[in-house]
Design a binder for these strands. Sequence first.
DNA 1: TTGAAAGCGCTACCAG
DNA 2: CTGGTAGCGCTTTCAA
Lengths: 336, 336
Amino acid sequence: MANRRATMHDVARLSGVSTATVSRVINQNGRFSPETEQRVRQVIRQLDFVPNQAAKDLRTRRSRLVGILVSRLSYEYVNSLVTKLEELLFEQGFIGIVCNISENYENEQTYLDAMFSMNICALIVFSSGRPIARPEGRSIPVIYINRMPEDLNDKLCCAIATDSVSAGYKACAALIEAGCRRVAIVRTLYGPDRRPRDREIGFMKALLESGCAYDEGLSVAVPVAGDYASAFASVNERLDQGQAADGYFCESDVYALSTIRSLEVHGLRVPEDVKVVGCNDMSIALYNNRAITTIRHQTEAICLKAIENMKRMLSGDELEQRHTVFDVELVRRQTL
Amino acid sequence: MANRRATMHDVARLSGVSTATVSRVINQNGRFSPETEQRVRQVIRQLDFVPNQAAKDLRTRRSRLVGILVSRLSYEYVNSLVTKLEELLFEQGFIGIVCNISENYENEQTYLDAMFSMNICALIVFSSGRPIARPEGRSIPVIYINRMPEDLNDKLCCAIATDSVSAGYKACAALIEAGCRRVAIVRTLYGPDRRPRDREIGFMKALLESGCAYDEGLSVAVPVAGDYASAFASVNERLDQGQAADGYFCESDVYALSTIRSLEVHGLRVPEDVKVVGCNDMSIALYNNRAITTIRHQTEAICLKAIENMKRMLSGDELEQRHTVFDVELVRRQTL
DNA sequence: TTGAAAGCGCTACCAG
DNA sequence: CTGGTAGCGCTTTCAA
C-alpha cells in the first residue's frame, strides 16, 4: 500500500551525501557543513522522512521502554501519579508501559517477565503495598516509589517516597491549631501485622507535641480499605455510641466524605462543630458542599525525580542519594 | 556491566543448530524435530535468553506501538477505558502509548507528530469532543472511539461508539417505569452550536413514547462541565424557585451527586420523594449513603472491538463493519 | 568535513 | 527437517 516509507538511504541519495552524514545531521553530532545540513534537512522535509526507531534501537543497543509496575491503578492517587509519569516519560522520548497487578501479588512475577520480554530499559515499581523480592536477572535500573527495595545498596536501584509521617503530622497539627482538642483518626483497620502505619505515627506525634491526649475510643478503624460504605458504617457506629471527636484526620478523602456524612446524620455541622481533614487530594474532595481540606502529594516532583534518577543510572552515573523523600502540603479548603 | 545478554547465535551454538532453527522454534514456525525443539528450549532457559525485539521489529518491519490519543484523561470514564485498552493491548503483545491532550486541541497535531516519530503501527483516537482532521501522511489504521472520522469510507479507519441515545432513553424510561411523571434532565449547558446531545435526545424519546410531557422549566443546565459545585448551584437555583421534578436523569454521576445533595437540602428524600439516575458508572456513584443508580458502558467490549478491528486492518483484512455501536446498561442501585 | 563499510540480532528465502 | 545467507535501517569507527 502506497510507496514504502523513506529511509536514510533515500535522503542520502537525494541530497547527494552519504548516510553517515545524514545520520550526523539528524543526531546533531557535528562534523558537517552548514550547507550540507541545509540540503539534508530540506530533503528530509520533502520526503517526510521519519527515522526507523527499531533500527536505531538495534544499532545503539538501547530501548526506550520503561516498565511501570503498579499495585492498583484504580486508586486515584496512584492513577494520577502513573499518568503524570507516562506523560513526562513521553516528553523525554521514553515510552512508559504500565502493568497493573490489581493487588494480585502472586502474578507479579508473571507481569515482570512479560515486561522483561518486551526489553524494558528500566523499571519503576509503584506500590503502597507489601515489599517484594527484587526481580533477579537483568541488571536494569529499578526505581521504587513508596516502597522499599530489598537492598538499597544495589547501585542500580533507588527509592523515592512521599512523607506519610508528615501527612499525618500536618493534618493533625492543623486540626489542633484550628482549635480541636479531641482529635481522632479514621484509618484502615490494621493488617495482620497489626502495626500502625506512617500516617498514624505522624498523627500521634503531633498530638504528643501539642500536649493533647489521644483518646483511642474516638478513632475509627475501617474494615474494608478505601470503601465509602464501610467507613460510613464504622464512623456511624462510633457516633451512635455517643463518642464524638471535635476533629478528624481521615486517611483518605473517601473516608473524609463518609465521616462528614455521618456527622451530618448525627446533627453535627462541619466545620462549625467538627473539623475534618482528608488525605490524597482526590477529586471527590470537591464533591461536597464544603470542599474538603486535604493533604496533597508532590506528584510531579516525585515523577521528575524518578525519571532523573532513571536517566542517571542508565548512563552509569552515581546517584546523589539512594533514598529521596518528598514532603506533603496541606490544602486548606472548607472543612477546617 | 555483567556479561552481555545472550543472542540467538549463542543459543544456536550451544544447542548445535543454526540460528534459523532457533528462530523457527521460538516462533513456532514448524520445520523442526521434537528433539531439536527440546534441546533449543533447554539452552534458551539455561542462558535466560530473551529475543531482542528491536531486531525482530526491524527485520519484520513491524512495530508493536499503538498510539492512544485522548481528549482528557481525568474523566473517570475515559480513564478506565484507556486503562482497559492498555491492559488488553499488553496482553496481546502490543504496547499502548497514551497521549493526553487535556483538551488543548491546538496541540493535537504536535502530539500526533510525536507519536508518529515513535513509529506507532496504529492509532486509537478517543474523544467525546469535537471532530478533528484525519492525520495525513502515513497510512496506518486509525480507530475512532466515540468520535466520527472525517471519512468513514477510508479502508484504514473505523468508528466504535457507545450508544448515548440509548443511555438517555434507558435512564428516562426507568424513571417513568418507577412511577415518575415529571422527569427532568440535568445536563451540561449547550456549547456554541446550541445542539442537544445524544443523551438528551434519548431522554426526550422516552418521554415522548410514554406520553409524558416535557416541562423544560424542570430541567437544569450546568455551566461548568463536570463540576460538582456548578451543578449543585444550578439545581439549587431551580429548586429554590419551587420547581421540582419527581425524577432526574443526570448526565454524569457527579451531577447526580450534586442533585441528590441539593434535594436533601430542600427536604426532599431520595428515592422516596424523588428518584435519580446518574450516568457513566463512576466510583463516586458509591460515595453516597444511597448508592446511585447509573448507566454503565460496555467498556471491555468496546476495547476488545477496537483491538480486533486494529488487528484486522493491520493484516489487511476487510472489516465486518466500519461503524460499531455498543448499547449501555442500567445499573439499579438505591436512588431509583 | 565527508564517505565506506562493518555490523546490531533477527527472520525468511532458498537450497539441500 | 535443517542450514546458509541476505538483508531490515541505522550508527560509528576509520580513513580520506
